[in-house]
Computed example of a mutant assay.
Amino acid sequence: MQRRDILLRSAAAGAVAAFPALLHAQALDKPKLTIAVGGKNLLYYLPLTIAESLGYFKAEGLEVTIADFAGGSRALQAVVGGSADVVSGAFEHTLNMQVKGQRMRAFALQGRAPQIVLGINPKTMPAFKGVADLKGKKIGVTAPGSSTNVLANFVLAKAGLKASDVSIIGVGAGSGAVAAMRSGQIDAMSNLDPVITLLQRSGDLKIISDTRIVAEADKVFGGPMPAGCLYAPQTFIDKNPLATQALANALVRADKWIQAAGPGEIIKAVPESYLLGDRAVYIDAFLAAKGALSVDGLFPEAGPETARRALASVDPEIAAAKLDLQAVYTNEFVKKANAKYPKA
């Protein structure tokens, strides 16, 4: 009887310990959801990876599936098509979708600068002097229509070139992008880390525009340019405010953990495949990108207007549109997340 009592008490204690987590999960309006991302291995989306690998989503009662695509535009298509609920992608897509009559709202920031680097191939363009030399050349981007494509168009436009003056080629965000550059399939590249650092260290890339540096990004775009973020259809947010809050909580924890972490901790927290076979390169890439990652998940108030100006300079439809910039983002959820998690 004594042994039986001990077993019963142990079982009861275990049930009580598990009950709060179970209750938390049941209380969420959507405990199971899918996040679509374009190039999950990129440092651009490091907070998403950290939230997953350190169990921050689970701690909030969420069961998250992350679907990885070749670029941000493909990830957006997944949500529009209904196969995913939330996008981990570039902020400017929220403005593009408003023009198309689809309300998308960003609710947690991952990057306070785009981290996108435009560089040329020294082998195919040894006599490169300026951006104008890219006319008629092949430029590799993660995927056509993605933020890497937008930045390339923006830099080209500032040099007097149109998007039609170059050939845009989707090369992804990993080993395929590296191979395309090294084999000479492309003359220039708009991509992110760790791809950029790997190519730069091997002498296969010469940087001409670097928005990993916040000050340079602000100069290029004329103000703060929000980058990677979590965004979703307004209908999802309205229907699932608790799940949206849980996502924001997890991401803010990840943002803060990254800022307090050392390179060694980062290496341990990301999958081996992210390192592209070279840990030293990944560490260098992390140190180069760290300053461009958000420290608290908050969107800068001037950010939406900066994004609108950048897009308007290359897209006549956006230039002519009257956009409601307050409708493309909210800091409501991350403010509550910061109150819940004041420290990393």
Rank of each mutant, 00 (worst) to 15 (best):
M1I: 06
Q2K: 04
Q2C: 01
R3C: 05
D5H: 14
D5F: 11
L8K: 07
S10I: 08
S10C: 08
A12E: 13
L22R: 13
Q26A: 15
L28D: 04
K32Q: 04
G39F: 12
K40D: 08
N41W: 11
Y44E: 09
Y45K: 03
Y45V: 10
L46P: 11
P47S: 06
A51F: 03
E52T: 08
K58R: 03
G61R: 08
E63G: 06
R74G: 02
L76H: 05
V79I: 13
G82S: 09
D85L: 12
V87W: 06
A90D: 01
H93D: 06
T94F: 07
G101N: 08
R105D: 03
R105K: 14
A108R: 12
L109V: 08
G111L: 12
P114T: 13
P114F: 08
I116P: 01
L118W: 10
I120F: 14
I120S: 02
M125P: 06
M125Q: 00
P126M: 04
P126H: 01
K129W: 00
A132W: 00
K135P: 07
I139D: 02
V141M: 08
T142C: 02
P144D: 01
P144S: 13
P144C: 11
S147K: 10
N149D: 09
K158L: 09
G160F: 00
G160V: 01
K162V: 00
A163S: 06
A163W: 01
S164K: 03
D165A: 03
V166N: 02
I169A: 09
G170D: 07
G174I: 03
S175H: 12
A177E: 11
Q185K: 15
D193L: 07
T197N: 10
Q200Y: 10
D210T: 13
D218L: 02
G222L: 11
G222F: 10
P224G: 03
L230K: 01
Q234C: 12
P241L: 08
L242G: 10
T244E: 03
A246Y: 01
A248D: 00
A250M: 10
L251T: 04
L251F: 05
L251S: 08
A260H: 13
G262I: 04
P263L: 01
I266N: 05
P271Y: 14
E272V: 03
Y274F: 14
L276K: 02
G277N: 13
R279W: 02
A280H: 14
I283F: 07
D284F: 09
A285N: 13
L287Q: 09
G291S: 13
G297W: 15
G303Q: 11
P304A: 12
T306S: 15
L311S: 10
L311Y: 11
E317I: 04
I318C: 10
A320F: 13
A321P: 08
K336G: 05
A339W: 01
K343D: 14
A344F: 15
